[in-house]
């Protein structure tokens, strides 16, 4: 997995799912690694329970516009977001889908989908609100945008003092997302090997 030179990311879900936090976290981690970063929220006439989204760009070069037109990756936390953003994704783009809340898989065949039941995994960890970190962990396992340890440092930097006790569960959630993806790809490799030897 090579270092990603420029990632243009859309993160989307319901208001309250920690969409903006995810975006700022990634942005903060990118800054800590000395890269160019921008973050742009959807703003204004949003409705409660509606779609909240943000644009994040992490790049080796100066960033022209913070507005992402053709994302190279998307993290999709609910169904309306999938409907809205799947068509915008660049070819071969990565799309992380929270399959616990999204009622259909990705339709496009020219993108790379990861279906991860982020909300269920977060529930198992004991806090449904860290589903965002599970999804982010899955994203970072696929794309070397920032190092996992920098993402963790960013969590510590961004959580206010009265939320320090949540650092640990955020760390676990990032880790769970990462291992979900890694175990999947291990399965896939094992599947190929076994098929190759005629065992499959």
């Amino acid at each position: 997995m090579g270092r990603v030179q420029q990632e243009r990311l859309i993160i989307a879900g319901f208001g309250g799912q920690g969409i903006m936090f995810m975006g700022k976290l990634l942005c903060c981690a990118g800054m800590l690694e000395g890269r160019h970063v921008t973050y742009m929220p959807s703003y204004g006439a949003e409705v409660r329970g509606g779609t909240a989204y943000c644009n994040v760009i992490v790049s080796d070069e100066e960033i022209p516009s913070p507005v992402v037109a053709e994302p190279t990756a998307a993290i999709i936390m609910n169904t309306p977001s999938l409907i809205k953003f799947e068509p915008m994704l660049a070819k071969k783009g990565l799309i992380i889908i929270n399959s616990a809340l999204v009622d259909r898989p990705a339709k496009r065949r020219d993108v790379e989908p990861i279906h991860i039941p982020a909300t269920n995994i977060a529930d198992r960890l004991g806090n449904t609100r860290v589903a965002n970190m599970v999804a982010l962990g899955a994203f970072l396992a696929k794309r070397d945008v920032v190092q996992m340890q920098t993402a963790l440092a960013a969590v510590e930097e961004m959580l206010p003092p009265y939320r320090r006790h949540l650092v640990e569960i955020n760390r676990q959630a990032l880790g769970e997302g990462k291992s979900f993806v890694e175990s999947r790809s291990a399965d896939a490799i094992w599947g190929k090997i076994t098929r190759g030897f005629g065992f499959g």
């Binding site: 700022k24 921008t38 973050y39 742009m40 703003y43």
Partner: peptide, 10 residues
């Protein structure tokens, strides 16, 4: 403009 007001940068 609205982008400049809303966007986050270091």
């Amino acid at each position: 403009d609205g982008v400049l007001g809303q966007m986050v940068e270091p």
